[in-house]
Amino acid sequence: MGPLRSMRDGIGFDTLLIGFALLYLLAFAGLPLLYNVIISFQQVDVFSLGTLLHPGAGWDNYLSIFRDPLAQMVLWNTIIFTVGSVAFQFTIGFAFALFFHQKFPGATWFRGLFLAAWVMPGLVVGVLWNWLLSGDFGVINHVLLSMGLISEPIFWRSDIDVSLYSVILANIWYGMPFNMILLSVGLAAIPDDLYEAAALDGATAWQKFWTITLPMMRSTIGAVLALGVIFTLQQFDLFAAITSGGPAGSSTVAQYWSWQLSFREFDFGRGAVISVMMILVVLAVSLVYVRSTRAETRM
């Protein structure tokens, strides 16, 4: 039972492969995560940044973040941004997935084109939407004006009432195709004969959707929504490109605020506080995701 033997029978090799993966995760995800938690309890500024150990700060950073006048607005913005983006990405993505699930010529080809939006870098998408949303010569204002829906142009990026929504709009467009593809896969996995059996049992198209499609998609939907929340909480590029979190913080969300604190104000301790709290949220959502995908394999 030497190491060579266990190497040859495959068990040792399995352990080796898992070992590498675990080591990688530990070094490049685990340690930074841990370090992030540690510095959220420390005083870190631009002068002490180079040292490994910093003076402890107890809960000061946390208290200071909670008391910050921006905190409440950022929290609300984050909730609105996440819920708004995920809700519309999902429903529009689901609608498109159902649409392309109808077998018409070119359906799969056309669906593939939608992925073009998703493969673009976020900054490029941001620049694209800057043009579309431009107050003076943007296409969106032009369309709304010529349809008579608005009487004067909306300054999407610089109006504090709408700046957040302009980023949400771009993010819905950006993330929808991903939702659509995952949901399409889920739809394709439902056997046709279930719909045929339901048709003979007397189901209308609407009843088939509610009693067959939706329940059969439960695990896929859980996974898509969980991933949607996680990706939305990671969205940074669009804010950087479209509003830079402004004006006056009106479109600042947690992840952008964390970056601003850390890399604009060099207040790494407080920046870390926000990311620690986001880790907790993402962790909870990840549990939903893991549970969903586990149910999927059991089906």
Binding site: P191, D193, L194, E196, A197, A198, I212, M299
Partner: peptide, 8 residues
């Protein structure tokens, strides 16, 4: 149906 097509 041949596959029975039971609602899983």
């Amino acid at each position: 149906f041949q596959s029975y097509a039971l609602y899983p």
